[in-house]
Write a protein that binds this DNA or RNA. Sequence first.
DNA 1: TTTGATAATTAGGCTAGTCTAATACCCTGT
DNA 2: ACAGGGTATTAGACTAGCCTAATTATCAAA
Lengths: 227, 227
Amino acid sequence: MDSPPLTRSVEDYLKSVFHLTNQGGFATTSDIAEMLAVAPPSVSGMMKRLSETGLIEHVPYRGVQLTPQGRRAALQMIRRHRILESYLTRKLGYDWGDVHGEAERLEHAVSEKLIERMAEALGEPRYDPHGAPIPTAGGEIEETELVTLAETEVGRAVILQEVGDEHPARLHYLAEQGLVPGVRLTITDRQPFNGPTIVRLMDGVTRVVGQELALLLFCRPSDSDGE
Amino acid sequence: MDSPPLTRSVEDYLKSVFHLTNQGGFATTSDIAEMLAVAPPSVSGMMKRLSETGLIEHVPYRGVQLTPQGRRAALQMIRRHRILESYLTRKLGYDWGDVHGEAERLEHAVSEKLIERMAEALGEPRYDPHGAPIPTAGGEIEETELVTLAETEVGRAVILQEVGDEHPARLHYLAEQGLVPGVRLTITDRQPFNGPTIVRLMDGVTRVVGQELALLLFCRPSDSDGE
DNA sequence: TTTGATAATTAGGCTAGTCTAATACCCTGT
DNA sequence: ACAGGGTATTAGACTAGCCTAATTATCAAA
């Protein structure tokens, strides 16, 4: 009844499938391959093994989805990752741009116990430093409809909820610009042809955000209700 | 000039060789095999690879020793391990019996940066929770002549410096008995035929310590000079 | 000095995970 | 209805690490 522990690779594959199927649908072989920086045949092989162990559902030539068991394992990994990121930033002085890589390695090595100790030390955080929701120990994750800054119409007021990126340099830049989770913005303008979005922060400062970055800034409407 | 990163296995082998050669001499194949819970041929194979990469010196049918490079790598792992153990006990409420296993997994996943952050948060500790010296970031380790409680002659006063064990149950028991690093003891008696050593703690309490445990308690003389 | 016990090594095989090259499948556009 | 292009899978090979069984080396004792 109790399964063998998952390998690092398997844990990574499950996480990828989770992220790729989060909006519904199937994860394709090539998307997984790209996300894990691995050749497509490696993915085919792994998908075969994972479906044999009941972690994913594989429809050949179509793609894969997580089984409930696979989803549980994936959410556990995501919880680990996000708790680690939170702990590193809040307790060990890490910059939010540097935590991803560290958490990526640690998530495969930490025990459940350690994660829960860290979560407790942080007061059971609900969001990681990038604003992403942290699954509960029981495997529940908050699902919110968010819209990227690039899609938000001019004139709207929004709260920046989550930054969907993990590259140190971009994150560092965004922090310099004050574009961190929790800030309130008003979209004052947008240039045509996929041009930049111009926003005003609460302190009156104006920022020009190019499309590449605007697509990473997930927002929710701020109908003048606080956080 | 810069070598490929070491694998988990390699890191473990190097640590074993370090511990087995610490008192001088060679580490034998079967000792390494036993320490790592692996079959002797696996060790032979690994020793071959490690001597090709210059981490150990292998004298066939004699044993192995670390090269300076191998020693550096081993000490780095030991620093990681002991900083982790210290951090877990002091910052996350771990019992000193439970830290070994956790550190054993984490030491292969942490970055240098994280270790130094933890060390800093702890105030650059010099000893881990079991009293073992922590190598410096530069690769220096304190070497002290210690004597086990089982060898200490009756009548002597000693300070318990280091507990050379990593089994949760034994460590838990020792803590209950007040036999933790730093306590001062007087050896009041010893039963013959490898019998127990009887000690008196500073608070007047008497403890009877069987030989198996007494061999794990490393002491230094306490000639009435405090720590 | 030979022998026999013990320890080390070599031989050969297994799994997980990766790769490249070759093949099979699916779907869209004509 | 089917031909191509693109994606997925299979075939086959490689590495790190591990194993067991067979062989070889060492050393101490007769």
